[in-house]
Simulated scan of single mutants.
Amino acid sequence: MFDYPVILTPDDGTVLVTFPDVPEAITFGVNEDEALLYAVEALESALLFYINDRAPLPVPSEANGRPTVRPSALECAKLGVYQAMTEQGIKKSELARRLGWHMPQVDRLFDLSHASRFDQIEAAARALGRHIEVRVA
């Protein structure tokens, strides 16, 4: 769902990573493996800009043979709740009201660097008429 294709470009002894769908996410590594590892953090940081700006998340394009990077499972769950909220036109204050939470709790829920409890993410999804599905592939 949040698998974003990357472009790996050799760059003077390092590997540059860019995201066609998330131009704010740029990083590099000494080799492809390290570059892809750092790409996860760059992607999460860039997607946080969209959340902070209350903007829709960029839609990942087709990989077409390129490697893809996705945020961690917890962050994907948070992004899914955020995406459902924006699709429904619901603001954070309305979500807080539905959950009976204070605004700082909702803000932490969408902070991708905060280790939210999974039951809180599930509660937010339910408040939006959605549910979280987890699978191991």
Rank of each mutant, 00 (worst) to 15 (best):
residue 13 G to V: 06
residue 14 T to W: 14
residue 16 L to P: 01
residue 16 L to C: 04
residue 16 L to T: 08
residue 17 V to D: 04
residue 17 V to Y: 00
residue 17 V to T: 05
residue 18 T to W: 03
residue 22 V to C: 07
residue 22 V to T: 08
residue 22 V to E: 00
residue 22 V to A: 00
residue 23 P to W: 02
residue 24 E to G: 11
residue 25 A to T: 01
residue 26 I to T: 14
residue 26 I to P: 06
residue 31 N to L: 03
residue 31 N to C: 01
residue 32 E to T: 12
residue 32 E to H: 03
residue 33 D to G: 10
residue 33 D to S: 14
residue 34 E to I: 12
residue 35 A to T: 06
residue 38 Y to T: 13
residue 39 A to W: 07
residue 40 V to D: 06
residue 40 V to E: 13
residue 43 L to R: 09
residue 45 S to P: 10
residue 46 A to N: 07
residue 47 L to C: 05
residue 47 L to K: 04
residue 47 L to Y: 03
residue 48 L to T: 12
residue 50 Y to C: 10
residue 50 Y to P: 03
residue 52 N to H: 11
residue 53 D to A: 14
residue 56 P to T: 11
residue 56 P to F: 11
residue 60 P to Q: 00
residue 62 E to K: 14
residue 63 A to G: 07
residue 64 N to F: 12
residue 64 N to T: 13
residue 66 R to A: 11
residue 66 R to Q: 09
residue 68 T to Q: 04
residue 71 P to R: 03
residue 71 P to C: 01
residue 71 P to Y: 00
residue 73 A to I: 13
residue 73 A to E: 14
residue 74 L to E: 13
residue 78 K to I: 00
residue 81 V to G: 06
residue 82 Y to L: 01
residue 83 Q to V: 04
residue 84 A to M: 10
residue 85 M to T: 05
residue 86 T to L: 12
residue 86 T to W: 09
residue 87 E to P: 00
residue 88 Q to P: 02
residue 90 I to L: 11
